[in-house]
Each structure stands twice: as structure tokens, then as C-alpha cells.
């Protein structure tokens, strides 16, 4: 098996970040990197103050990428994200001022506070990877990752993302409270926001582009496809679920599994890679029947996974 391009560098970044700066956020970091490597986006769903922004900042610095941030409010306009043309008096023409979206990593804080119009503009940019303002199309930089956050507890004055738009996010995950020891350490240390501004870049953009190309090349075999399809079909036939996984959801699952396999140093996807990512990729795409709204999606998914044997041979 030949060596995968840049895999050591990627793992080194993960290792460095999770051991030095962002203790207890390994999973979220890894998922974020996976989203970046597959060209997907990630939705972090958790209460404020667990270090979502810190993580995004550190992530961007360590990868040597530019970072932009949008704090959503109900009066946020699409142009606040994409940028707008301003008339230059001296030159006598309009100059396009680029918005925060023109960065490699864009943190959209509390995305559910923005009004639907803004949300859809944003989501369009995420999907198309380009922005059209006043008839001119601008290509977004490569690599490009949107890290959106939303607070699942607060409901007043929010515009919850409809399921169809949730589908645009490759991965949805929480961050969770750090383990006791680590949290105590964080309390002792205080905020490290200043410190992480100065994390040196551990990789170059070329490295990242190389890695992204390598992930694309990861082989997905028939057995894995069968396994993925079995999961999709099971969600579609499940009595509690109204709408199972879409084809896009299946593609997302395979893409994420590719990234997981890549991070494991493999140039092919194993079924356990798929199972590894199911919980990040699938739950937010499942629509339960109205009478079963309250059921825990993770539990249902676990039950489904238990039913389907891992193809070993």
C-alpha cells in the first residue's frame, strides 16, 4: 500500500491541536477536519460558551488559513455576508468589498438567528462555492469550510433551519462539556483566546489541497457501498421515520467515510469507517413522523446499525 499524500501532516495537526490547545475537543476537531477535507460543511450544535469559536479560530490558525466570522442577528442581510459594491469617487466606479465569506474558514455564529433570506444566501454560497453579487460571480477561496453554530436550547427569536437546509451540512455534531480534569485545567488557565491567535501554521495550503485531492482518491468498494445502501434503506423503511436518508445524505456518508479512512492512513474505505461517521452525518437528515418527534434520533440509528452486520468478508 503506497503512502497517502499528506496524511501524516493532517494527523499531526489534529494531534497538536487536541493535545496542546484544544483539550477535550478531539472529536469535534476531527470531524471539522473531515468536513474540510471532503469539501463539506459542519454545523456545531451546542450551548454557547463551550469553545466553538475558540476551536474554529485555533483550527484556522493551525492550518494557516484565513478566518472570517459572521455573528448572525435577525437584521443581518445577505450582503453583510457576501460583501457589497461601494462607489469609489476618485476612480468613478463601483468597487466590490468582499464580505467575510471570502475566507477559507468562515464561522457563522448562531445561524438560526439570521432570517431565512440570509440563511438561504449563505447556504447557496456553501453549496455553489461562489457568490454572485450584482451580476458578477466571485469564486470562493479553496479550501473552503463553513463552521456554523446554533444554540438548540434558545428558541425565541430564531428561525430554525428547515430539514432541507440542514441537509446541506455534511456533519452536525455537538462539542459537549470537556472532561472534568481538562475543564479544571481550563479554569485554572483562563481563556486562551489570545494564545491561539498566535498558533503557528502547521501546514501549508498546498498541503491541504494535496490532502483534499488524496481524500477524493480514496477507494470505495462494493462491500462498503452495499453497507451504506443497507443503512439508507433501513432508515427509509423504519416505522418511526417519515423520510429516511436522501441520496445526498448517502453521498455525504461515503465522503465522510473517505475522510475517516484517509485519516486512518488507508486508501480504501472499510465498513467501520462508515459506522464511525454515521452518527455525525445522519441524524440531522432524518425526519421522524410527527407522533414520534420526541424520539432520540441517535437511539433509533443505533438500533438500525445493530441490525445490519458489518461486512467483514
Amino acid at each position: 500500500m503506497q503512502k497517502l499524500a499528506k496524511v501524516d501532516e493532517m494527523n499531526a495537526v489534529l494531534e497538536e491541536l487536541s493535545s496542546q490547545h484544544l483539550k477535550g475537543k478531539v472529536r469535534a476537531l476531527r470531524l471539522s477536519l473531515m468536513a474540510l477535507l471532503t469539501g463539506g460543511h459542519i454545523l456545531l450544535e451546542d450551548i454557547p460558551g463551550l469553545g466553538k469559536t475558540t476551536m474554529a479560530l485555533a483550527f484556522a490558525s493551525a492550518l494557516g488559513l484565513s478566518f472570517g466570522r459572521v455573528q448572525c442577528t435577525s437584521d443581518l442581510l445577505p450582503s453583510d455576508i457576501t460583501g457589497l459594491s461601494v462607489f469609489d469617487r476618485t476612480e468613478g466606479r463601483f468597487n466590490f468589498i468582499r464580505g467575510p465569506i471570502f475566507n477559507n474558514i468562515v464561522l457563522i455564529d448562531e445561524i438560526n438567528r439570521a432570517m431565512p433570506k440570509t440563511q438561504s444566501a449563505l447556504l447557496e454560497a456553501m453549496e455553489e462555492r461562489r457568490v454572485t453579487v450584482e451580476g458578477v460571480t466571485y469564486q470562493l477561496p479553496e479550501p473552503f469550510l463553513v463552521l456554523a453554530t446554533q444554540n438548540p436550547v434558545e428558541q425565541v427569536g430564531t428561525y430554525p433551519l428547515p430539514e432541507s437546509q440542514m441537509d446541506r451540512f455534511l456533519i452536525r455534531t455537538g462539542i459537549g462539556y470537556p472532561p472534568e480534569e481538562i475543564e479544571k485545567g481550563i479554569l485554572r488557565q483562563g481563556s486562551i483566546r489570545d494564545e491561539i491567535m498566535h498558533i503557528p501554521a502547521l501546514v501549508t495550503t498546498d498541503d491541504l489541497v494535496g490532502a483534499i485531492a488524496a481524500v477524493k482518491e480514496v477507494y470505495v468498494g462494493e462491500k462498503v457501498t452495499d453497507y451504506v445502501y443497507a443503512i439508507i434503506r433501513a432508515t427509509r423503511n423504519h416505522p418511526l421515520i417519515q423520510a429516511g436518508l436522501s441520496t445526498r445524505g448517502g453521498i455525504g456518508m461515503v465522503d465522510a467515510a473517505k475522510a475517516a479512512a484517509y485519516l486512518h492512513g488507508r486508501d480504501f474505505v472499510a465498513p467501520e469507517d462508515v459506522r464511525d461517521v454515521v452518527h455525525a452525518v445522519c441524524p440531522h437528515r432524518l425526519i421522524f413522523r410527527p407522533e414520534h418527534e420526541g424520539v432520540d434520533k441517535e437511539h433509533v440509528l443505533n438500533a438500525i446499525l445493530k441490525e445490519i452486520p458489518l461486512p467483514l468478508t
Partner: peptide
């Protein structure tokens, strides 16, 4: 696993 998987999961 490395040897086995590289054949079996590569069809």
C-alpha cells in the same frame, strides 16, 4: 487487517 482490507475492501 492492512493486507486483508486492502484486498477485500478494494473489490
Amino acid at each position: 487487517a492492512a493486507l486483508y482490507g486492502s484486498a477485500v475492501y478494494r473489490d
